[in-house]
Design a protein around this nucleic acid. Structure first.
Length: 153
DNA sequence: GCCAACGTTGGC
DNA sequence: GCCAACGTTGGC
């Protein structure tokens, strides 16, 4: 079982939205590196932190389960969709998604500056300069460490 | 709203 | 295959 961190802008889709719907297709991935990770490394049963980006207090806000294999992202085929990609052929889909399922909110928001200041997390892509991955792997040690932060601060 | 970082596109 | 221009991400 692997661990992940997945970013979403809460104005578009928040942890509260995920709690409301229960399970959601994580669509809109349009980055090859991220696509390859979900295609080759992500598996049902994996677990992920839900991260709010591009908001007043960016940080980790919840936990979810990966509940599907990677499958074609239908929004890539729909001209009305924001993330429509005319170059993605339904017979040979370029973009993939996975389904995620709400587990719980973290006990508190764990804000980005706190993650950045933590020596145990300095290897995380999240806190490294110029990182632009919307999904990234989290090691087991990092996962446990972040969970331990829930009860602090 | 600004802008640094970085991925993608397309002309050559 | 190079690389300048352009678009996007996302913190601040």
């Amino acid at each position: 079982m692997a661990y992940w961190l997945m970013k979403s802008e809460p104005d578009a889709f928040s942890i509260d939205d995920l709690e409301r719907v229960g399970t959601e297709p994580w669509d809109g991935i349009r980055n090859y590196q991220v696509r390859n990770m979900i295609r080759d490394e992500m598996k049902p049963g994996d677990r992920a932190f839900f991260y709010h980006s591009n908001t007043k207090v960016p940080g980790i806000v919840g936990i979810m389960d990966i509940v599907s294999e990677a499958r074609p992202d239908p929004t890539a085929f729909d001209p009305d969709e924001k993330y429509y990609d005319p170059k993605s052929d339904p017979d040979k889909p370029r973009w993939l998604l996975v389904d995620v399922k709400y587990v719980r909110h973290t006990k508190r928001v764990i804000p980005l500056p706190e993650l950045k200041a933590d020596p145990a997390l300095e290897e995380m892509p999240l806190v490294r300069r110029g990182n632009r991955l919307s999904i990234m792997p989290v090691s087991e040690d990092q996962w446990e460490h972040i969970l331990s932060l829930e009860d602090q601060g």
